[in-house]
């Protein structure tokens, strides 16, 4: 599939207002563009799963029908646009790195990634944006097995995460429930928590178990709207050159830290493929579903959903047009 080379798309009209000087730095050749032949892409065995028509891989599937979901959630008639709550005084590492990339370069020179040495930074204040919009997930599979993961709010009640957090092929498929805890900080739950039973993913994951389509959504119940207080991530489709040049931010709830603390790291991509972004940002089990985002001015745009670890590079499902369209649809379910 050819990579997009069009003007980057934003979640709404705000994207077109981005001042040119706030665009993340380009590569040393000044253009940052590289040929498709230079890209690499992870392949995952599809052992025994259905090979779908390419037009069907991003077709939405859920554990409830749209009408059932509306009934379950008593969907409100009101519509509200996505937004980002920016705390002026917040200590935002992603903002610091975006403004002073030389600090990131310096930090990178002094340390290595877990594929070497651990570079993660703990987020001590998780009650400010964007950290408060990142959620710890406590997952109970259909068969009762328990897991931890990470998700991020894109609307008051919509949490985006990895497909394998909302559909586990060997554990009965859709989970029994997922508890969502925005901005969890050890025992503190600054925005409370909600238990969700409505989930969405796409056929490329649920039927083909294809790593390229590993993304999904959690729709929170009507009576729990944390995104209205925390703010919500934007999301965007960016072309290869842009992603290769940009600073990627990733924050989530790693299990090696207990799964109740949020840890952050930023770095440029290692490679960009048509459906996957690969990087050497440190991650551990529990960070599946974490946002991989760009900081542009005061706006945060997720460009990937962290899913996989590997000694050769950790990786995210890339937000391409089809993913973007589903996120827009799921966002509307959680207004």
């Amino acid at each position: 599939m050819a990579a997009k080379t069009t003007t980057p798309l934003g979640i709404d009209a705000l994207t077109s207002e981005i001042p040119a000087l706030e665009v993340p730095p380009t590569t040393s050749n000044g253009t940052g563009r590289q040929g498709l032949a230079e890209e690499t892409e992870f392949e995952v065995p599809e052992g025994g799963f259905v090979l779908l028509n390419p037009n069907e891989v991003d077709r939405e599937v859920g554990n409830t029908s749209r009408s059932e979901t509306e009934s379950l959630l008593d969907a409100p008639q009101l519509e509200e646009p996505g937004f980002e709550a920016v705390e002026e005084n917040a200590v935002a590492l992603d903002a610091i790195y975006a403004s002073y990339p030389e600090l990131l370069e310096r930090d990178l020179l002094t340390t290595e990634v877990i594929i070497g040495q651990d570079q993660r930074t703990r987020i001590l204040n998780t009650s400010t944006f964007p950290w408060n919009a990142i959620c710890a997930l406590k997952i109970t599979a259909a068969n009762g097995a328990r897991y931890i993961g990470t998700g991020w709010l894109i609307s008051p009640r919509t949490v985006i995460t990895a497909g394998h957090c909302v559909y586990m092929h060997d554990q009965g498929g859709w989970p029994r429930s997922i508890e969502v805890i925005p901005g969890m900080n050890d025992a503190a739950r600054p925005f409370g928590s909600g238990v969700a039973t409505v989930f969405r993913s796409v056929q490329g994951w649920t039927q083909s178990k294809n790593r390229n389509y590993d993304y999904g959504a959690i729709i929170l119940p009507n009576n729990y709207r944390p995104g209205a207080r925390t703010g919500a991530f934007g999301f965007a489709v960016k072309d290869d050159a842009y992603l290769k040049a940009a600073l990627l931010n990733l924050s989530g709830y790693p299990g090696d830290k207990g799964g109740n603390q949020q840890w952050f790291m930023a770095q440029k991509a290692k490679s960009v493929a048509s459906r996957v972004i690969t990087y050497e940002i440190d991650t551990m089990g529990g960070q599946s579903g974490s946002p991989v985002w760009l900081k542009i001015g005061n706006q945060r745009f997720a460009v990937g959903i962290h899913t996989n670890g590997a000694t050769s590079g950790n990786s995210a499902t890339r937000i391409v047009q089809a993913v973007y369209n589903n996120l827009m649809s799921w966002k509307a379910m959680g207004v």
């Binding site: 995952v44 990895a162 394998h164 799964g259 089990g285 529990g286 962290h306 899913t307 590997a310």
Partner: peptide
């Protein structure tokens, strides 16, 4: 290879 970054409890 590559493995999903979900932790078990």
């Amino acid at each position: 290879g590559s493995f999903t970054d979900m932790a078990a409890i």
